[in-house]
Amino acid sequence: MPGARREPDPAARQRLLRIRGRSVAWVPPLLLLLGIAVLDWNTSGEFRIISWIVLVPGIAAAICGVWGTAVFAALAVVTYVVVDTSWPHQYQTGLPDFILVTAGGVLATLACAVRVRGERRMVHMRDIAEATRRAVLRPLPPGWGGLDHAAVYLSADVEARVGGDFYDIQPGPHGTRVLLGDVQGKGLGAVETASAMLGTFRESAYHEAALGTVAARLEVRMLRHVRYCDAVGRADGDRFATGVLVGFREDAPDEVEVVNFGHEPPLVVAPGGVRSLPPGDGLPLGLGELAGGLPPVLRVPLAPGETLLLVTDGVTEARDGDDVFFPLVDRVAAALATDPRTVEPRRLVRLVRDGTLRHSGGRLEDDTTIFAVRRPTALTSRSAAGG
């Protein structure tokens, strides 16, 4: 969601309020209650602060549960009565402040109930979103398709309206094919479109000998999906998807085939530096008819040990407080100069993920997928065999 801000995670907040597995959320409001009572007892009669005790249930409402907040609301009222009546009559704050403290406790308890309900709903929605994403993005075992690989998906939507980023690796008799894409829009419609693309990719990438045929099957599937959405009256019938389709052929170990559907061109990350693949002139999936055909299949050099880095626009469009885009190429090149092992997929994905989050201050403008694949070098192959 453009402009969305990442809200505090309720689960993470609760972890911060635990020590050795036990909740200490009750400590701040208790200390505040005792502090106000002690300070009021030691002030002069002309300056009473006991009515400040109304803050106690308010603090509890922000960090404690409903019952805990109710207990502190009751303690605030009892403490107020005990402390106030211990003063001579002329210095007592009396009924008005008693009503204030009582009403404050009731309102704080109600506010806490609303907060807890909202947090539970948020956690529930995030669980549903995660389950949906896992159903679409299957886990990839190590070495799948004979490739070293690593990937990470970061959601930018605080309301758990999942996005349409997708990726997969499909080995087959004609080599291993890789797909990364980004469906326009968000929500379950985008996830449904991503699922359709992945289903077609997994079948065609296995059976079809030519990568261009796989690309054609993806284009046809997108058009069929759009026509179906129009037929059932769905508002998302105008969807399209950018994507990059890559083929690793066994008979061409020093090159890859690439079809670019209007996506950011992948980067080739090598120990000696970073280079970008040709951008191509293809339109996104679903819009090929406007260009009179599909984008061409490009053959580009990729030596064993060089890593192909594919990202969605959550990375390339990440901005800092000064509205400056994340300098992906410069960051990767600088890391390589410091540590050539950055070329390894896991290290590379971790570098880009951490760099993107730091650059954007943790506020992602869009869902973000970072995907790195490479043919294993002889050294990594022997290490895997020995493991």
Rank of each mutant, 00 (worst) to 15 (best):
A61Y: 01
E119W: 05
S86N: 06
D127H: 14
P96G: 07
E130M: 11
V77M: 05
T93C: 04
L110Q: 12
V101H: 03
R48C: 05
A62T: 13
V66R: 14
Q90Y: 10
T132F: 09
R48H: 07
P141K: 01
V71G: 07
R138H: 10
I49T: 15
R117Y: 07
R134E: 11
I63L: 15
V77G: 01
D84T: 13
T85V: 05
R117G: 13
R48A: 08
F47T: 08
P57I: 07
P57R: 09
P88G: 13
R126N: 08
G105A: 07
R117W: 05
R138V: 04
L110S: 09
T132R: 12
L55G: 10
A129D: 08
A60Y: 09
L137Q: 14
V54P: 03
A131H: 11
F72Q: 02
G105H: 00
V101F: 01
V56G: 08
G118Q: 04
P88R: 11
L140A: 02
E119M: 10
Q92P: 08
A108S: 15
F72L: 06
Q90P: 03
W52C: 07
V123S: 13
V116F: 10
V136P: 07
I59H: 09
T79W: 00
G94A: 11
A131M: 14
I63N: 11
A61N: 02
I50S: 01
R126K: 13
V56H: 05
A62S: 14
P141D: 04
V66K: 09
I49N: 07
R120Y: 06
Y91C: 02
Y91S: 09
A62G: 14
A73N: 04
I49S: 11
V106S: 02
C64L: 15
L55D: 01
T85Y: 06
A113R: 13
P141L: 03
D84V: 07
V136H: 05
R117M: 02
P57H: 10
L95K: 00
V123Y: 01
P96M: 09
S51Q: 15
W67K: 06
T79Q: 01
T93S: 09
P88K: 10
R121C: 04
S86I: 03
L137I: 15
A76Y: 02
V116N: 11
I49D: 00
L100E: 05
R133F: 11
V71F: 11
L107I: 15
L100R: 08
A131L: 14
T93M: 14
W87A: 14
G105I: 00
V136M: 15
R117N: 09
A76S: 15
R138L: 10
P139Q: 05
C112H: 09
D127C: 04
F72W: 09
G104A: 13
Y80T: 00
V56L: 07
S86E: 02
M122W: 02
P139W: 03
W87Y: 15
A113E: 07
T85P: 00
V66F: 04
T102A: 12
V136R: 04
T102V: 08
S86D: 09
